[in-house]
């Protein structure tokens, strides 16, 4: 029996043994139990080892804090969005400022090295935004005036820098993006503005700068930046912003509306992003976004050429096949990359 097992073990290919070096997960344990390879007792022991009770409480602690704070803050925003005709302005401002101070002092008391302190600081930053929105309502500047968002971003910047909290940086980036978009819309009405698509490369550039800062932070081992979701979100936003003028230029080439600049920046961003996320900071979701953005641009170009030649049934049939071919090729390549990256990680 022992010899048979030894022979069988020796026959396991190297790639199979490499699976043993992957981090175990509850899902694997459920699968193994479902396949009859683990007894009930073995499954329970494995789950106890993988996820002891304190892991659950740690997760619940964070989840309750984030979800509870998010709901409460959303409630505050809804409260001030309500058309308060009978509440005097001084009362509105007082409530907001009390909330702001309570959160800011709470953050200091809890300490910015604790999650609850960081969430309180985030809440204080949201209160600053609410303050500007109510100011806009009260003094008829409009809650969506770009100055409100620009000032909001400017005023919370020191807190954002002190907070060392990824979610806070993302909030700041979102506010900054909205400020730039509103500036573009409000400064000059879109219909009369020639460089209508110039906004998108600008937004992409701003987010790309934020991404470079994030990558620099990672290189400096700022552990509070370790959640990869920030990288995914920001790189996706860069590609979406660049895809809009790129598609616009392919569909209707105009040289004075800023779309060509978007296309040119896209032509630099795609290979640069691919190289970076393939060779410098291996990241499959970012590579996938890059491949998808490239596929979208290529398909738009092919569709444009094809439907200019003919709009008949064969053109639609051919385009359908090309879409299938390109998406299959992209998926095939991403699968290959996924396997390759898994083995690099396990090695």
């Amino acid at each position: 029996m022992g010899t048979a097992i030894a022979t069988e073990k020796a026959n396991i290919p190297f790639a199979a043994e490499a699976e043993l070096d992957q981090r175990a997960s509850e899902r694997t344990i459920f699968d193994l139990h479902a396949a009859g390879l683990l007894s009930d007792a073995a499954r329970n022991e494995a789950l106890t080892v993988l996820c002891p009770a304190h892991h659950w409480w740690c997760w619940a602690n964070r989840a309750l804090l984030f979800v509870g704070a998010a709901l409460t803050l959303a409630g505050v925003v809804f409260f001030f969005a309500y058309n308060w005709s009978r509440m005097p302005a001084v009362a509105k401002f007082s409530i907001i400022e009390v909330g702001l101070w309570v959160c800011a002092i709470g953050a200091i008391r809890r300490g910015l090295n604790r999650l609850s302190g960081k969430v309180l600081l985030l809440a204080a930053c949201v209160f600053v935004g609410v303050l500007f929105a109510v100011y806009g309502q009260t003094y008829q500047t409009g809650a969506d005036a770009f100055e409100n968002y620009a000032l909001w971003a400017l005023l919370i910047l020191p807190w954002v820098m002190l907070g060392k909290f990824g979610a806070l940086w993302v909030l700041w980036l979102v506010v900054t993006n909205v400020a730039l978009i509103l500036f573009w819309i409000q400064f000059e009405p879109l219909e009369r503005f020639d460089g209508v698509f110039l906004l998108f490369p600008l937004l992409a550039g701003m987010n790309a700068l934020a991404l470079i800062g994030y990558e620099y932070g990672l290189a400096q081992r700022w552990t509070w930046l370790e959640g990869r979701w920030i990288r995914h979100l920001v790189w996706l936003s860069v590609l979406v912003y660049l895809s809009i003028p790129t598609i616009a230029f392919i569909v209707e080439p105009e040289f004075d509306n800023g779309s060509m600049l978007g296309l040119l920046v896209m032509m630099v961003a795609l290979p640069a992003g691919f190289w970076y996320f393939r060779h410098r900071a291996a990241d499959l979701p970012c590579l996938a976004f890059t491949v998808m953005a490239a596929s979208t641009a290529i398909l738009t170009f092919i569709g444009k050429v094809l439907f200019e030649i003919s709009e008949g049934a064969p053109a639609f049939f051919l385009f359908g096949l090309i879409v299938l071919g390109l998406s299959s090729a992209a998926a095939f390549y991403l699968r290959h990359l996924n396997k390759e990256m898994r083995h690099v990680v396990s090695a």
Binding site: I12, P13, A15, A16, D31, L32, L37, A288, L334, N338
Partner: peptide, 25 residues
Amino acid sequence: IVAHANLRSARHGEPWFVQALLAAG
């Protein structure tokens, strides 16, 4: 278990964005 884990990895290792790409295409 080793054999099963390897098979499972080959079958279910497909990331969600690949599935999304295939579905969209």
